[in-house]
Amino acid sequence: MRRWLMLVVLMAGFAFSVPGHAQDSQTVISEEVVEQRARDIGRGLRCVMCKNESIEESPSTTAQDMRRIVRERVRSGETDAEIIDYMQSRYGDFILLKPPVQPNTYLLWGLPFLLLLLALLWFWRAARKYSQDQT
């Protein structure tokens, strides 16, 4: 019982606590937040020199400059979508590590589901034939 009480008190403490940096002025984004958001954005952007790394992982000069530009834009108050749009406007869909769902990628996104459906269909027919043969 006492353990339960302590847990409740502890949880209430977390629930009503205010993160330290939340009191910062709203126009200035703290460096911690900038870094966090920039990393999230950067992990989704492909390094154009090394093809299979994100700009956060790549040591290439272009990726270094891209990382800096992403951080500058976060600081200047742009949203994640605006920053990704900017990069996409410069490098095309290629810059996105996760391809967007659009007409030329329907096949890419749909094929696994289509194959699964076909496999299930095949399984269902084979199973039915098997049970018919048994009887």
Binding site: M49, T62, D65, R68, I69, R90
Partner: peptide, 14 residues
């Protein structure tokens, strides 16, 4: 110096 135009023009390197 900072690659501002290099990135803006969609360049991949030098």
């Amino acid at each position: 110096r900072m690659g501002e135009l290099v990135i803006a023009m969609g360049a991949t390197g030098a």
